[in-house]
Design a protein around this nucleic acid. Structure first.
Length: 254
DNA sequence: ATGGTTGTGCAACAA
C-alpha cells in the first residue's frame, strides 16, 4: 500500500502537479492539505478512480483524503477550521491533518497551535483503543529536530522550531506513533517545504514539516519513504511551497 | 533592503 501526503497550497491551482503525483507515483491513498476551497468546489474530476472525502473551507485551510479503495469517513476533531479528516479503510484508520501554522512565542496563535496538538493527542489516544492500525499524515508545521532545518542557528526560536512545538509533537508521537521517514533514514537532512521568497527552493534551504506517522504495530510493514523534491525543482508547472511525502507499507489496500 | 512569493478573491490576510 502506497501512501502520499501533499500540502497543495490551493488545489485548484495545483491540478497539473497533482496529476503528476497520481500518474507517476500511483498512490493508493493521498492526503491533501490547504486545498483552500469549499467542499463543493473540490476538483473531484481530477481524481478519477479515487473516492475523495473532503472537508473544505472558503479561502483557507481545508483537507481531503482520496483513496482507491472505498472506506468510511470519520470525524477526527470537531473544529471550526477544516484541519483534520479521517477515513477508515478495512481495519486501517487514515488520519490527515493540517496543523496550525502558529506565530511567535507568546502570541495567541502560538498558544492555539500548542492546544490543537493537545486536542489531537487526546483524540488519537481514544482512537487507539478502537483502531490498532493508524496512519497519521499531513503538514504538522513543526521541524522535529535540527537536522530537519536548513540553518538551525538562523531559525532557532522561530515558527516550527520552538521547543514547545517540538515537545507537543513528540508527546503526540509518544502515545505510539513513529515518523516513517526518520525511522528509515536516521541521519538524512531532507526537506518538504521551502519558502517561496529569497530563492530558498533552488538552494535547498527548507524545513521538514510534512510527515507520515504510523502506529507502532505497523512498523514491520514499513518498506520505503521518499520526499519528492523533484516536484519543486521541476520547471514545467507552478509548484506548491511543499512537496509530497510518499511511504510504502507491505499491506494490501483492502 | 524591516526586503522576498503565492493563493484566495478582490482588499487584505495567511502562510
Amino acid at each position: 500500500m502506497k501512501l502520499a501526503t501533499f500540502n497543495v497550497n490551493g488545489i485548484r491551482s495545483r491540478i497539473e502537479e497533482v496529476n503528476r503525483l497520481l500518474n507517476q507515483v500511483q498512490p493508493d491513498v493521498v492526503g491533501l492539505q490547504e486545498i483552500k476551497c469549499e467542499t463543493s468546489l473540490f476538483p473531484y474530476e481530477s481524481f478519477a478512480g479515487y473516492y475523495c472525502s473532503v472537508s473544505g473551507q472558503k479561502g483557507y485551510n481545508g483537507v481531503a483524503i482520496c483513496s482507491r479503495v472505498q472506506g468510511s469517513p470519520l470525524e477526527i476533531l470537531n473544529e471550526v477550521e477544516s484541519r483534520s479528516i479521517g477515513y477508515v479503510i478495512g481495519g486501517l484508520l487514515i488520519v490527515n491533518v493540517y496543523a496550525p501554522h502558529g506565530d511567535a512565542r507568546g502570541t495567541p496563535k502560538f498558544v492555539q497551535k500548542l492546544n490543537w496538538f493537545g486536542k489531537l493527542r487526546q483524540r488519537l489516544q481514544e482512537l487507539l483503543t478502537t483502531y490498532s492500525s493508524i496512519v497519521i499524515m499531513g503538514d504538522f508545521n513543526v521541524a522535529l529536530e535540527d537536522i530537519d532545518v536548513w540553518d538551525p542557528l538562523l531559525l532557532k526560536d522561530t515558527v516550527g522550531t520552538y521547543a514547545e512545538e517540538r515537545e507537543e509533537m513528540l508527546k503526540l508521537m509518544e502515545i505510539g506513533f513513529v515518523d516513517v521517514f526518520r525511522y528509515l533514514n536516521p541521519n538524512a537532512s531532507e526537506y518538504t517545504w521551502w519558502d517561496y521568497t529569497s530563492g530558498r527552493a533552488k538552494r535547498n534551504q527548507g524545513l521538514r514539516i510534512d510527515y507520515i506517522l504510523v502506529s507502532e504495530n505497523l512498523l514491520p510493514s514499513v518498506r520505503e519513504c521518499h520526499i519528492l523534491r523533484d516536484l519543486r525543482v521541476e520547471k514545467s508547472f507552478k509548484p506548491s511551497d511543499h512537496v509530497p511525502v510518499v511511504c510504502t507499507l507491505d499491506l494490501l489496500p483492502t
